[in-house]
Design a protein around this nucleic acid. Structure first.
Lengths: 336, 336
DNA sequence: TTGATTTACGTAAACGTTTAAGCAACCTTA
DNA sequence: TAAGGTTGCTTAAACGTTTACGTAAATCAA
């Protein structure tokens, strides 16, 4: 009635469970004949190993936990895709956790992951608060950061160089002949995707001898609605500009839509460049020129690193700054 | 050195493990004083239960597996979000599986889920092949279908009525005064999102006394590129039309972009209605009028049903046809 | 032939829980 | 006071594996 266990197989094959276990694992210590018999019994009973029991003795679950601020975002799910791909290749399962950016939920999830004895954790797109760090440290499993990093703790991470990418985006606009360039930034308190991108923008202006004007930067929250407002503000209050660098694709698109509604033509009247290259960047019209972040690749890399740490404790893995690149589509025009 | 176990707690509190287990589970059979002592020991040692050991004896892992054809799609990740939300509320973890629509991968994943002793499975957006069904049946855990169903097997599912939704989309165009209506459909072999939607379209035409013309339907694969081609074909080969119903948002957007590139104005020259209401439907310009599928809700419902089946075997849960609705944005105009 | 080595197993402990069964001490009740 | 109940525990088996250790038989070397 119950699923057959290794004992049932042993009984059926008239050997001990140790022998069954050994043939199942391709160890040695049995004759070819016994191997045949055991295999037949396995077949006949339809035996499937129980990973829970195995996990108990091995202290390994072949499972990793992944935390996202919002699993349903295009951003997160691309990363997840990469993580899952490698994990599955290497025989690991992944438990997804949606933190909703809430500390309580996050901590609760960390506890669940601990109780479930996951072998490692990847933590994405949020700042690693001290309490999270402590919780993870307590559970003594490796952790990899994706699209975030920690100054305070030496934890391997995978991310692009936001400052440099923002620099490049801005510089591109400048090379295209623009000199009055506005920016729609995320919160400056955001040490990952906020401040550094603004800083890259500022640096690019400086290096090209263009004055930085605070009145030309508006702050959003990386999402659509906020950037419509930001755009409205820029259009009414800022000194004139011919191009905008938005710190996320979603904000770029919000800005673009608002501008179009105001009768501006993109890119004829206004050039826009985004950041992320999410799937919908190429779906909008005109398709968005933007900074590409290789999210799936980042997920894969994180998975690789994590599994390396799990399988070879002792080994040190380093952080990776992955290379972004600018993808030219149709929202930026050359200014004569 | 090793994490403390229930035995360590027992030793520290000078009681048996059974007693510790009971106070941890709020059963009775101990005095208030012992409870205090045990709790103190738990605190002092920082004891955390081991869910693997627990799973072994309880034959319950509090884990469910979820299979997606493509985890990174906006569609899947919205469903996942809903599933995760309820699961976490009810104390379940979710393992994500990306089948990539490959039979081999799917079967491999089903085996992994079996070995990991998941308590239930949700299977989404793909036809449940016989071999999948057999594998799941063999593992004797409940399963819920989302955005798909099985004629052959009685398995509870959660989905919208595709035929009816397509009917409604088409009928809406007709009510808006259109009579020459093209359709960009998915593959007619697709028994879920392909044929039924075409059929709904056809039925709506018929009910309004409009002739169905095969030359006005083009076939795509639900994705962007295919619908550009489909649109091109319609524009060059089909009898003139004033509106298009696309069987997915992504196809609607591809069609829309192609039309705009050809100089058509949306919705002045051509009305378009989509299907899905994915996140980017409101991001494009003009924002897409479309059929809303409540994906997150569907995920939640699936989770609820699955957990009900897990917790109360014996109980029968029914399928749900969830209600879609049409969301009016700006890609359809009233024809005078 | 003898002793050593190898082969082919079996035995049993261990992993960290839950829980049925048992039991001593105390409390009722008649 | 004896029989029965209750309270507050402990003991030990069980869940399904892995694996260190033991051992009998077969093989080998000298």
């Amino acid at each position: 009635m119950n699923p057959p266990t290794i004992k049932d197989v042993a009984k059926a094959a008239n050997v001990s469970v140790a022998t069954v276990s050994r043939v199942l694992h391709n160890l040695d210590g049995y004759s070819d004949k016994t191997k045949q018999i055991v295999m037949q019994a396995v077949e006949a009973l339809g035996y499937q190993p129980n990973a829970i029991a195995r996990g108990l003795v091995n202290k390994r679950t072949q499972t990793i936990g992944v935390l996202f601020p919002d699993v349903s975002s295009s951003f997160s799910s691309d990363i997840l895709h990469g993580i899952e791909e490698i994990a599955q290749e290497r025989g690991f399962s992944v438990i997804v956790c949606n933190t909703a950016e809430e500390g309580k939920r996050t901590l609760k999830y960390l506890q669940v992951l601990r109780e479930k004895q996951v072998d490692g954790i990847v933590f994405t797109s949020e700042v690693l608060k001290d309490e999270y760090f402590q919780a993870i440290k307590d559970m003594r499993v490796p952790v990899i950061l994706v699209n975030t990093m920690s100054q305070k703790h030496m934890i391997p991470y995978v991310k692009v160089d936001d400052r440099q990418a923002a620099y490049q985006a801005t510089d591109y606009l400048i090379q295209k002949g623009h000199r009055e360039i506005a920016m729609i930034s995320g919160s400056l308190k955001d040490q990952i995707a906020g401040y550094p991108r603004l800083d890259g923008y500022r640096q690019a202006l400086a290096d090209n001898g263009i004055e930085y004007m605070e009145s030309r930067v508006a702050i959003g929250d990386f999402e659509l609605e906020s950037s419509r407002k930001a755009m409205q503000k820029l259009l009414t209050e800022a000194p004139p500009f011919t191009a905008v660098f938005a710190a996320s694709d979603e904000m770029a698109i919000g800005a673009m839509n608002y501008a179009m509604e105001q009768g501006l033509k993109i890119p004829e009247d206004l050039s826009i460049i985004g950041y992320d290259d999410l799937k919908f960047a190429r779906m909008v019209h005109p398709p968005l020129t933007t900074i590409h972040q290789p999210l799936t690749l980042m997920g894969r890399m994180a998975s690789e690193k994590l599994i390396a740490l799990i399988e070879d404790k002792g080994s040190q893995v380093s952080s990776s700054i992955v290379s972004h690149h600018l993808v030219e589509r149709q929202t930026v025009r050359s200014k004569p």
